[in-house]
Structures are given as C-alpha cells and as structure tokens.
C-alpha cells in the first residue's frame, strides 16, 4: 500500500515520460520481489500513472484533496480485484496510516521545489 502511495507521488511530480517508465519499472521490481507473474503490477501502476496524467492536464494533482480520495479509490479497486472486501477495518486503518507518509512525501517535494526554485532565482 505504501508503495502505491510512493508511485502516486512520483507520478504526480514527474513528466509523463519519466513517470510511465518509473511506474513500469516499479511494477517489475514488485513482481520480482514478491515472486509474482512479471508485468501484472506494471500494468496496474501504468493505468494509475495514465489516469493521474489525464487529471493533471486540467487540475492540480499534487493537492491532497485529489491524492487522498484517489488513493482510497485505487486501494479499494485493487482490493476488489484481488478478491477482498469493499471496506475492511484493517485496510482502512492502514490507509489512514499511509496518509501520514503521503503528507510527509508531499512536504519533502514542496521543500525541494522551493529550494531548487530559489537556487534558480539566485543564478
């Protein structure tokens, strides 16, 4: 679940070329690490990346107002696809805990953007 969060943050903060390649590689690594059939996770991450980029064209995808419900939707869909229940308390708890990391990652990204922006100004 945390990995989906990381992939999501990566996708919203990079260009389509980088994020689609990143999503593919992340999926490949997940399948190799878990011993799953290669390519399955890549397709899921690619669909997430594609959907985020379509949204990014008109709206701000780095906003928590988008990330939070989108992540919940993705997790619920994945849980349904893998035969789980629509809402389960442990999954919901895990999701709430994940939000903390998303906020931290976004904070880090915002800070990095600010610092790199200042550097550019000074040049």
């Amino acid at each position: 679940m945390l990995l989906i969060g990381i992939v999501l943050i990566f996708v919203v903060t990079t260009t389509p070329v980088t994020s689609l390649a990143g999503a593919f590689l992340a999926g490949l690594m997940v399948d190799l690490w878990r011993g799953n059939v290669l390519g399955g996770s890549s397709i899921i991450y690619l669909v997430i990346a594609y959907a985020v980029h379509l949204y990014k064209r008109k709206f701000d995808a780095t906003s928590l107002w988008f990330l939070t419900p989108f992540l919940l939707m993705v997790i619920t869909l994945l849980s349904l696809v893998s035969g789980g229940r629509l809402v389960s308390l442990p999954a919901l708890f895990e999701y709430i805990m994940l939000q903390k990391w998303i906020v931290l990652l976004l904070g880090g990204f915002w800070l990095w953007k600010r610092i790199s922006g200042e550097k550019r100004l000074s040049v």
Partner: peptide
C-alpha cells in the same frame, strides 16, 4: 501520453 502508455502496457503484456 497515450502512445507512451500503450507502448509500456504492450511491453508489460508481452512480459
């Protein structure tokens, strides 16, 4: 974007 998505998806499917 669509072309890239389709390309990577095709590679994933082949894999």
């Amino acid at each position: 974007l669509t072309q890239l998505f389709l390309l990577w998806s095709a590679i994933s499917l082949v894999l």
